Simulated scan of single mutants.
Amino acid sequence: MHRFLKQQIKQSKLKMKIVHTINELQSELSALTAQGKMVGLVPTMGALHAGHASLVKRCVKENDVTVVSVFVNPTQFNDKNDLIKYPRTLDADCKLLEANGCSFVFAPSVEEMYPQPDTRQFSFAPLDTVMEGAFRPGHFNGVAQIVSKLFYAVKPNRAYFGEKDFQQLAIIREMTKQLNLDIEIVGCPIVREVDGLALSSRNSLLSAEEREIALKISQTLFKSRTFAADHSVSETIRFVEESIAAEQGLRLEYFKIVDGYTLQDLKDWADTNYAVGCITVFCGQVRLIDNIKYKEI
């Protein structure tokens, strides 16, 4: 029997444990790592959906122990109202995680993760000075604070992140290098609804009418990939901007076509072998992000 399949069967038989403190988590994990167990981590802010489940399933497949953190991190919200409105569904999250073979749910309090204010200042320039970094000052510093804390607490062999947060994934890879952490960062593909809408915890905040309107985002990105085949970068950007502007109920914050390695604006398709279009759109009051790959090696 394949080793990963053995791991998945073995892990699914373990009763999932919910822990709330770092000391308890480390006590549980130290006994397992002493036996040579490989540990995978899936950091989340809860309100879990099928996209998160796909990360958990891959983590379960590739590791002996799967830890999923559920923590709404206050330091990465530059809008306090956004923090207040962010959905919190721990009971439902735990049911989803147990069904998908999670070993440990780490659900700490704010006081547990921040017994004192975290004054660390990270710099990931130029990765964090564009797109989300430009529109959400301090956001990625907060992300780096909490993810590094989770890495230190869990000490995973691998950590899993979705490619929907494309810029975040690039920054976490850079942070891992800067902190000299021996952790494999695994990026996982965007999971979409059947109709194409990228799965997001924020989708639950959309009304039924807004949910229909939001489809225009992914539909426009898919069309733009065909459009890009015989148009320039600037023409493709204009196509997306005009398509979103024509849809009542959507407000474009930005659309950028960037080099997937540096996240810097792309001028010509020939300048890179990894071209990614990143978009942020308000649908009503809900801020949604998505991305699409135009070129990938």
Rank of each mutant, 00 (worst) to 15 (best):
I217K: 01
T176Q: 05
N141E: 10
D195A: 13
E235D: 15
R251H: 14
Y152P: 05
N157E: 13
S204K: 15
I217A: 06
H139W: 07
R225W: 09
S148D: 11
F227W: 10
T226V: 13
D182Q: 14
P189M: 06
L150Y: 01
F151W: 13
L252D: 02
S148A: 12
V147N: 02
Q167Y: 05
A159G: 02
H231L: 13
L263C: 10
K177F: 09
Q264N: 08
L221W: 03
F166R: 02
E241N: 12
G196Y: 08
A214L: 08
A246M: 08
V191H: 07
E209H: 11
D195T: 13
I237N: 04
Y160G: 04
S218R: 06
K149A: 10
G142E: 07
A153G: 03
P137M: 08
T220G: 04
R225P: 06
T226Q: 15
K164Q: 04
F255W: 01
T176L: 07
I244S: 01
D230K: 14
L169Y: 09
L179G: 07
R211S: 14
E253Q: 12
G162K: 01
D230I: 14
V240N: 02
A229N: 14
V240I: 15
Q264V: 10
A228N: 08
L252A: 05
I146Y: 00
T226E: 13
P156M: 05
E163H: 12
R158V: 09
D230A: 15
R238N: 14
S218D: 12
L150H: 00
L181C: 11
V186L: 06
D230Q: 15
L181Y: 10
